[in-house]
Amino acid sequence: MSARPIATTRSAAGMPTGRLAVWWVIASEIVIFGGLLGSYVMFRLSHDSFASDAANTNMYIGAFNTWVLLTSSLFAVLGHKAAEEGNGPKAARMLWLTVGGGAVFLLVKTYEWYEKIHHGHTLSSSTFFSFYYTAAGLHALHVIAGMIIMLFVANTARKNLELHRVELIGIYWHFVDVVWIFLFPLLYIAK
């Protein structure tokens, strides 16, 4: 059962199977976040109270985290480049840097949530904060999942094996990034 089926090695659609599948994963993820953020926007437009709640979010922390995630995506791209050149160990190092970026993001997020909860803004204190924690929490879960998968990919890439996976996890990581690009203005900038 170690060998792949022949089916996996075919590419009638002209795209490697793994990449095709990752795009479908992302397509199904887009509608998950789309439903959540769509609901948020509809609420936001019809509830004035959201604006006063949103005033409590810290735009500078959000901006810093945006910068951290975008930088980590740069490392993911560099890792992909190294993998294409067949340099597995370098690709693995780049993926570790990407994971490091994700870790900084989560630490900042932890501080931010700690401070919010300390000031009495909890999951159930208002509908705005319910969305704030649910959307950012769902995103953070994706960050954590991406980091774990990336560690596995880096571990095989280090031995110069399965280098195509570096690109696949990179595509996923960029998607997680893009979700944050939507969350940041919706939750932090629009006051």
């Binding site: 199904s28 887009i30 959540l36 319910s130 969305f131």
Partner: peptide
């Protein structure tokens, strides 16, 4: 199914964590 997955999370939070979506 995506919006309903999000909805299911929101409903579970409403049931157990005191949110009010």
């Amino acid at each position: 199914v995506g919006p309903l997955v999000a909805g299911a999370v929101m409903l579970l939070f409403d049931q157990n964590l005191g949110t009010a979506f």
